[in-house]
Amino acid sequence: MRQNPSFAMADVGEIRRLIEQNPWVTLVSATDDGLVASHYAVLLDPDRDDLTIVGHVGKPDDLIHGLGERELLVVVQGPHGYVSPGWYGDVQSVPTWNFVSAHLSGVPEILTPQENLEVLERLVARFESAMPQPRLMWEAPNDPEFVRRLEKGTVGFRLTPTRVVGKRKLSQNKSDEIVETVIAGLEAGTGPYADPRLAGEMRRDLDTRKAAR
C-alpha cells in the first residue's frame, strides 16, 4: 500500500483498535505458483501490547501459503466508502473513496496444538459473547473429542509484523467545513452511500486534529 504522509496512521493504539474492530482479514502470500489469498478472523495476542496477532487457517491453506516458511501479508480493512463530489459544494472536484486500512507483514510462527486450541476457544468466545445465549467451544453438545478433531483440521499461527503500513484517508486534505458536509452525507440514513461507521471514523479523526491545533 503506497503511503501518503497526509494520511499515515502510525499510532500503535489506533492500529490495534482497527484490528480489534475489524478482525476479518485477508492473508496474502507470494508462492512459486503466484499470489494466493485467504480470508480468516484474527485476534490481537492478549499477552502482547504491540501489533502481534493470532489466528488459524484450515488445512491445506497452511501448505498453500507456506505458513511459517515465507512472508505473510495481512490486510486489515476498516470502514470505507464512496465520497461524492456533490458534498464538496459548487467547486471543481472529483469523487474519491475514504478508508482506514493497515498492512501487517512478517513470517508467522506456527502454534502448538494446545496453543491453537486456546486461540480457537478465544475466537469462539469473542464472537459468541454478543449472542443472547452464547455457545462456547467446549460446551455441550460439543465434547472434547469433537473439539480436538476440529483442531486437527486447522493450523494456528502468531504473527509479529516486521513491517507495518497504516493508512487513514478521511478527507484530511479538505477544510473542516467540507469534512463536516461529507460526514453529514455519510450519516444520511436514506442516502445511497450512507455509512455511519465511516462517518464515525471521520468524526473521530476531525475531533483529534482540532484538539491538536
Rank of each mutant, 00 (worst) to 15 (best):
M1A: 13
R2E: 12
N4T: 15
P5Q: 09
F7L: 09
M9V: 02
D11G: 09
V12Y: 05
E14W: 01
L18S: 00
E20G: 11
E20D: 14
Q21I: 03
N22Q: 05
V25G: 01
T26V: 10
V28M: 08
A30I: 08
L35P: 06
A37D: 05
H39W: 02
H39N: 08
L43W: 11
P46Y: 09
L51M: 10
T52H: 06
I53D: 00
G55F: 06
G55V: 03
G58D: 12
K59V: 12
K59A: 09
K59R: 14
D62G: 12
I64C: 08
G68M: 10
G68W: 07
R70A: 15
E71F: 11
V75T: 08
V76C: 00
V76F: 00
G78A: 04
G78Q: 01
H80V: 08
G81K: 02
V83I: 15
P85R: 14
W87Y: 07
D90E: 13
P95T: 01
W97A: 10
W97I: 03
N98I: 02
F99S: 12
S101V: 10
S105L: 12
P108M: 03
I110C: 06
Q114S: 14
L117C: 10
L120S: 11
R122I: 01
L123V: 06
A125E: 11
R126E: 08
A130H: 14
L136T: 03
M137D: 10
E139V: 08
E139G: 08
D143R: 11
P144S: 07
E145S: 13
F146K: 14
V147K: 10
R149W: 14
G153V: 06
G153K: 15
G156F: 10
G156C: 09
R158F: 06
P161C: 07
R168V: 02
K169T: 02
K169E: 02
S171N: 15
Q172P: 14
Q172I: 07
K174W: 13
K174I: 13
E180D: 15
E180P: 02
V182M: 03
I183K: 02
G185W: 02
G185A: 08
G185D: 03
G189Q: 14
G189C: 11
T190H: 15
Y193A: 13
A194T: 08
A194V: 03
A194I: 04
P196E: 04
L198C: 06
G200V: 01
E201L: 04
E201W: 00
E201S: 02
M202H: 01
D205M: 04
D205Q: 11
T208R: 12
R209T: 03
A212T: 12
